[in-house]
Computed example of a mutant assay.
Amino acid sequence: MPKISIPELARKREAGEPIVMVTAYDFPGARWAERAGVDMVLVGDSGAQVVLGYDSTVPVTTDEMLVLARAVRRGTETAFLVCDVAFGTTETSDAQAVETAVRFVKEAGADAVKIEGGRAERLSRIRAIVAAGIPVVGHIGLTPQTATALGGFRAQGRTVASASRLVEEAIGIEAAGAFCIVVEAVPSEITEVLREALTIPIIGIGAGPTDGQVLVLHDLLGITEGHTAKFVKQFGTIGADAVAAITAYGEEVRSRAFPAEEHGYAGTPEALEAARQALAAHASE
C-alpha cells in the first residue's frame, strides 16, 4: 500500500471517502494503527495526559513530544504522520513557530504539524510554517491548550458569536495555507456549514459526520480510566483485559504456579558443576 499523501487526502474528500485518523504515542500504538489501515496518525499532545500522566496538555514539552513522535515514526509506514506542537512553543513569534515545526520534521520525521486556534496571530504562525515548506493541520472548536479561555472543556459553536467565529477562523486557516483542519466538539449543523465554506478536508471529533474522524487511541481501546468526553465511543476493552491479565499473573506468581518447567531453560551437568566449584572457591576465600 502506498504512503498516504496530501493529494490523496484531498482526493478522498472529493470522492466522499471518509478519512480515518487515530492518535498514537509509541511504537506499538503506531503498529496497531498501521495494521488497521488508518489514513492518518496524530501524535497528539493528549499524550501528556494518557501516556505521561499530566493533568492537562499544557505542561508537556517539545522534547517530550519528540520522544513520542520518534517512536511513532518508527512504527508508521503508510499512514500520514501529524504531530501536535506543545503549548508555549509557537506563541511568541513566527520564528519560534517555524523553529518548533522544523524540529518535528527533522528530528521525528513528521509529515505535518498541527496548530490549535484560528485568531490572527495563529494565522500568522500557520503562514510562516507553510512558507517554510512544512504542511499544517489546523484545529478549531474546543482547543484543549487554551480551553480555559473558552470557558473550560465545552462544546463550541452553540452561540451566535461562537458559530460566527468558527466560520471566520476556518476560512482564515484555509487561506493561511493549512491543507486540513480538525474540528472538535462542535454541533454537526455548524460543521456542515464549515464544510460548505472550505475546500480542505475536515477531520471531526465530536463534530458529527464529515470528511473524516479522529479519536484518541486509549479512549477507543478502553484504556482510559474515569470520565471521557461525550464524543468518545469505546471499541475495545483493552484496559480491563490488561488488569485481568496482570491480576492472573500475580496470582500465579504468589501460588508458585508460574513459572512452570516449560518456562525455563535446560542446563548441562558440566555447567552446574562449574557453578558449584566457583561457589566453593568463593566460600573458601
Rank of each mutant, 00 (worst) to 15 (best):
L220F: 15
Q156D: 01
R195Y: 10
T159M: 05
T224C: 09
I203E: 05
I129T: 07
V216W: 04
T159Y: 06
T224G: 07
T143F: 04
D211S: 06
D219T: 11
I134N: 02
I126D: 03
E189R: 13
R125F: 00
G226K: 08
R154D: 02
V183A: 02
G152S: 06
H139R: 04
A149F: 14
L217I: 15
L220E: 11
V160N: 10
I202S: 07
V160D: 13
G133T: 01
A207S: 11
G157K: 09
G133L: 01
G222Q: 11
E225M: 12
A161S: 09
Q213I: 11
V130F: 02
L194W: 03
Q156N: 02
G152M: 06
A131V: 01
P135T: 01
P187A: 08
G226Q: 06
G141D: 05
G226I: 12
E192T: 13
T159S: 13
T224E: 03
E184T: 08
E121K: 12
I134T: 05
A240H: 14
V232F: 08
L198D: 09
R158V: 12
L198I: 08
V182K: 04
T146E: 10
G172E: 04
S162E: 15
F231P: 11
I223K: 09
Q234N: 10
Q234W: 03
G222S: 10
I200H: 07
Q145Y: 05
G138P: 00
A149N: 12
P144F: 07
V193R: 15
E168Y: 10
S124H: 10
C180E: 03
A170I: 08
T199C: 12
L150I: 00
I190S: 08
V167G: 03
F153R: 10
E184W: 09
G206C: 12
F179Q: 02
Q234V: 15
I203G: 09
R165Q: 15
T191E: 09
A128N: 03
P187S: 06
G138R: 00
E196N: 15
D219K: 08
I200L: 11
G157I: 02
A176S: 05
S124A: 15
A176F: 04
E174Y: 02
I134A: 02
V214M: 01
I181Y: 06
H227L: 13
A161D: 14
R165H: 10
T146H: 12
T228M: 13
A170E: 05
A128M: 04
D211R: 05
R154F: 01
R154H: 12
G226M: 07
D211H: 09
A229V: 08
K230T: 14
E169W: 10
G138W: 02
V137L: 08
A163V: 11
R125Q: 15
V137G: 00
G177E: 01
P209S: 12
K233M: 07
L221A: 14
T148R: 13
K230M: 11
S162P: 00
H218G: 12
E196A: 13
V232N: 05
I200Y: 02
I126E: 01
S124W: 00
I205D: 08
T228W: 10
L217Q: 13
G172I: 04
G208V: 03
